[in-house]
Write a protein that binds this DNA or RNA. Structure first.
Lengths: 238, 238
DNA sequence: GACCGTTGTTCTCTCATGGACATAACCCTC
DNA sequence: GAGGGTTATGTCCATGAGAGAACAACGGTC
């Protein structure tokens, strides 16, 4: 399936959403030194852009220091708040991009024990600790490939790390890119557990097809979603 | 700042975007057994909903098995493809939600070496290996709290794990929730490195205020974004 | 064959978004 | 005081999304 994951990131405050379109407007103001030049550079109307700035400022505080009259007619510059806002959205976008591009392993399971937002989930591969939204018993766990750490068997101390979801398995595939590689592990389930690691790590861990490796991932990095009941017939939970 | 991170997840195929609104339509069809009942249950017009289904199917393949005439006049059910699509969007949404809620530590740095998409970045806290988009020298690293693993000092084998970004520091704060806790580490920089771990882990690692701990995180879980030049006065680079 | 509730198709109407344009206010330079 | 380029504000129009209504086609049941 050539199915692309996309998104539209936004920062929300007091019901007003600051999105990528707003960000490009602020950046254009920063670049051109005036709201007028910014709008025309973006091919947007001045009036809408100006009103949007006012709208944003009502929620997010001062963003654009505007000056009219004076030599050159005036101009506008961004406030520190605007720069912070831009940086925040940029960061959020980067994070989302990471998620959208990252492959993940999916395990179905049932919650057997819960302690607040954390739960113990029984899956076909074994028990997993994960963050589970309350109210769901049958869940689907998504484990991001970049959250999986690989180790050599026997080398991992049992009690001295905070990552304690652990599966041992056989390496069934290694796909190498420039500097990164995707390692698939057979952990006794239909689906393979994939880990995204550097090629460097593959060398130092001496990984090759057929070799044994331990994959570990943190409970806090494992998010669960309620399993859709479409196929299953169970609705017995609370 | 009570600034909420939000998003709008969508799956893209052949230029058509399948978003949450489409998902709710499919779910309503699944629930009510007919496109007609689904549309009116959602308060939408039938004609639009019907057209949207056709539009989606042109890109994503058969989604709704429609039957007209017959006893009861007919009805519609979802295909397996539709269920898969729903599950995929649900998963993506769950992932994004995780990101939006997760706190992160930000480090500024400069790229000193690059190997494909992977780069070595010099930061105030030390050198970090991270995934860096090509073309940027000054970057800002975002390290998600749930991607940071904690260890007791000395316990971590040097060469036998694939997580090799490592910082030792002193615990400066522990905020405990029900089952999770946020640990702040002083790693010699202004900003604290925060890790999201289970309370259980805090106990087994014997963490307390003032104790030393090692934080490690994978290069592949560390994404960089080009640093905006706004506040800084350096513009000497390319 | 009539009935019925569904799917399919087409039309008009409304509403929100945003561009295009005009005008006023501003304030420094000349 | 005139000029000039900016911010600020209002009005008109094009576009698209979606509601609503009307009507044909369908294929079981009665």
């Amino acid at each position: 399936m050539d199915l692309d994951a996309g998104f539209d990131a936004q920062l929300d405050k007091s019901g007003v959403e600051f999105d990528e379109r707003d960000a490009s407007l602020l950046r254009a103001i920063d670049d051109h030194g005036s709201l007028n030049a910014a709008a025309s550079a973006l091919g947007r109307s001045y009036s809408r852009s100006q009103r949007r700035v006012v709208e944003l400022e009502e929620a997010f505080g001062p963003l654009v220091a505007r000056e009219r009259g004076g030599s050159g007619g005036g101009g506008s510059t961004l406030t520190d708040g605007a720069h912070d806002l831009l940086a925040a959205l940029e960061r959020l976008t980067a994070e989302f991009t990471g998620v959208a591009e990252t492959e993940e392993t999916v395990l179905d399971g049932t919650v057997v024990e819960r302690d607040g937002e954390l739960a113990t989930v029984e899956t076909t591969a074994g028990t997993v600790r994960a963050i589970v939204p309350t109210g769901s018993r049958r869940v689907r766990l998504a484990i991001r490939a970049d959250a999986v750490t690989l180790h050599t068997p026997g080398a991992l101390p049992d009690r001295e790390t905070s990552a304690r979801n652990r599966f041992q398995g056989e390496v069934t595939a290694i796909e190498s890119g420039d500097a990164l590689a995707r390692v698939s592990l057979d952990i006794g389930t239909e689906v393979r557990l994939t880990a995204l690691v550097t090629r460097e790590s593959i060398a130092t861990l001496a990984l090759s097809l057929g070799s044994e490796a331990i994959a570990s991932f943190k409970a806090t990095a494992t998010r669960a979603i309620p399993a859709q009941q479409g196929t299953s017939d169970e609705r017995t939970d609370d």
